[in-house]
Design a binder for these strands. Sequence first.
DNA 1: AGCCACTCTACCGGGTTGGTAGGGTAGGGC
DNA 2: GCCCTACCCTACCAACCCGGTAGAGTGGCT
Lengths: 137, 137
Amino acid sequence: MLSKRSQYALKALSYLTEKYKEGPVLISEIARKKKIPLKFLENILLELKLIGILDSKKGKGGGYFLIKPPSKVRVADIIRKVNGPIAMLPCVSLYFYERCKNCDEKHCALHDMMIEVRDATLNILEKRTLVDLTDMP
Amino acid sequence: MLSKRSQYALKALSYLTEKYKEGPVLISEIARKKKIPLKFLENILLELKLIGILDSKKGKGGGYFLIKPPSKVRVADIIRKVNGPIAMLPCVSLYFYERCKNCDEKHCALHDMMIEVRDATLNILEKRTLVDLTDMP
DNA sequence: AGCCACTCTACCGGGTTGGTAGGGTAGGGC
DNA sequence: GCCCTACCCTACCAACCCGGTAGAGTGGCT
């Protein structure tokens, strides 16, 4: 399961995608529209900035905005950065790989099964970008 | 990611599948062969018994054993019982469903995307049983 | 100057994770 | 009827994560 934090992050990014080209958006506006606790959202947006997905502007007329066009930001990458591994086991993770002490990967049926699951998941998430997250009216 | 507990559970069950029809298997044997901390494994096997996957026999010649034929035990069900939801969001979970406060499911793009991911995952895990977990030599 | 909006530090209760320790108790064999 | 075996039960632990909340700081704009 994605953490609440990750869910909020995705919601916020989808809102910023809709407002792309309208300039900076207030934290408070995002919080209100997406029903996210304000101070928690502050924290999340800050992380997204440090990660390099967003940038911000202070003072009047300030707010947060996407650095890159929404079509260039993959959902899979956001999830990895905010939530962690997408795979179900460390030994089948592409970006958070860790060798398994309990088995030999060449002969581990669980390993093979989880590779399948990982590929099926990535096949969806790596093809989707923020644009695919914008809600239908 | 699956918790360590879930990983150990699956490993233990795959071992018990290999020893199916050979009668009860000692906790200590499973622990040794699968490199799982003994007391932790005790705890896990007990849970699997309460869940209704295993049964045990006390005294000499005792141990743990599968209640049902391995081909009747689906991997997806084990994961759900030991680890929790398979879906990435509560609002797309079949067995742990919770309505989403942040969005209207009918018009939520994230919701739709995660349904796709869920189905791709279940398409694999619900077709697999313990038999598919037995390792190749 | 003064407001605005992000930024930073800190804190907090409660829960989960990944164990460890140790004694209790039922079942079989002899 | 005793004793060994092997599961059963309770308790504890440190460390971290989750989902926030609070409040003061700081830089930018007009």
